[in-house]
Amino acid sequence: MFKFFTILFVGLVLLGNGCAKQAKVSEPTAPSTAINQPMAPVEKTETNFLPKPKPVIPADTPKAPTATVYTVKVSNFSFSPAKLTINKGDKVIWQHDDAVAHTIVSVGNFSSPVLSRGDKFDFVFNQAGEFNYYCSIHPSMTGKIIVK
């Protein structure tokens, strides 16, 4: 009798475990938070087989100097200023403001037409040096442009 109940007891126990396991399997399991967490960023370790090209920073290219415009006034039988120092590439404008006609002449360099009041004559000095000029009508009217 005792054996019968022992075997019966063991059988029930085994049977109960099996059912419990099955119940565990079939039961929808809650998602594991550990699994579904976004992965922590993985630090990339680059292996530079070739040196990374450095960004090319354009060097400061020297800007072309802007030409300056100078004005020489022609009045009262004189040039004002009579002596002017400028840089290569600058322009000089002679503004005639006298009662009589004048010219602007630099032998071998430039020669203006006969200028009357209100007329202008200009010249761009692209070469360095000293340029003496005068009025061909009134030779005592002289001036000088120094080009650096």
Binding site: F77, A99, V100, A101, T103, V114, S116, S136, I137, H138
Partner: peptide, 22 residues
């Protein structure tokens, strides 16, 4: 000289005289 060579206005070669209108 003014009319034939320099081709400038008549009388323009003469300097101003102080006190006298050109």
């Amino acid at each position: 000289w003014e009319l034939g060579e320099a081709r400038v206005p008549f009388g323009s070669r003469a300097p101003d005289i102080i006190g006298i209108t050109r």
